[in-house]
Amino acid sequence: MTLVLEQLLNGLQFGVMLFLLAAGLTLIFGIMGVINLAHGSLYMVGAYAAAFAAAQTGSVIIAILAGLAAAALVGMAMELFVLRRLYARDHLDQVLATFALILIFNQSVTLLFGRQPLFVSVPPALNGSVELLPGLTYPIYRLIIIAVGLLVALGLYLLINRTRIGMLVRAGATHREMVRALGVDIRLLYTAVFGLGALLAGLAGLMAGPILAVQVGMGEQILIMTFVVVVIGGVGSIRGAFFGALLVGLVDTVLRAFLPGLLRQVMTGSEADALGAGLASMGIYMLMAVVLLVRPKGLFPANV
């Protein structure tokens, strides 16, 4: 039972990480209509900047600030110099251009930091575990990730639904031309939204550092899952991104944890492990296929 609870918490933690990426991606797609394959690169930039700053200064605060600032600045530069020219183009051009950006980012990071993964240690203050229930101890760091993710979700909800900027964002997602006609500087709004998305991606990246290896290619692995989240949740919808991310995080973690064990009861160990791992990896894609077949616009479509 405690094992199940622990895996559920792991799933939740993975889910909120996915949410941080998916929120930015879905906003960028919903408002600007851009498919940004390079969103994963911003996650990588955040992780590398934080890891580098931590190694240089040893300060957690500086590492966090460095990760956030690097991701946001790189993101806004990306919007300013490349994506801005692509808003009017079709999705194909956007895919190609952002794929090119992935190549550039990955190679630049390889050039700067080498191919060896960087390992980041958990900040000492957060190192340790707490006993949540009798027999269930859980690392504090992962609990903090969950808390930060939920706080960001709440903050985004308030920002989108309760502020003037949020109103413009919502309006921009549904009636772009009308917002422009009313005299809103849409270019500034776009850059701001892109910067926000990049900031969240950087936040996810810097928090992922101590749990996963910081390496080139980390962005693409999570990018595909993020796209799954965005599509399941409904493109352009923050609420969809939130529930989609939790669903995908839980399904993926639980399948990975328990499927090989279940299969081992009907077949030999090594085959069960291989097949279980394969099927577990397929799980979220099956989930997405089923969701899209039943509700082609996702679970929480933005523009209804």
Partner: peptide, 16 residues
């Protein structure tokens, strides 16, 4: 976009 992503999903399933 949904079409782009669902074709990707099927390809990923076969990959795994």
């Amino acid at each position: 976009v949904q079409f782009i992503m669902i074709t990707l999903a099927f390809a990923q399933m076969l990959f795994f």
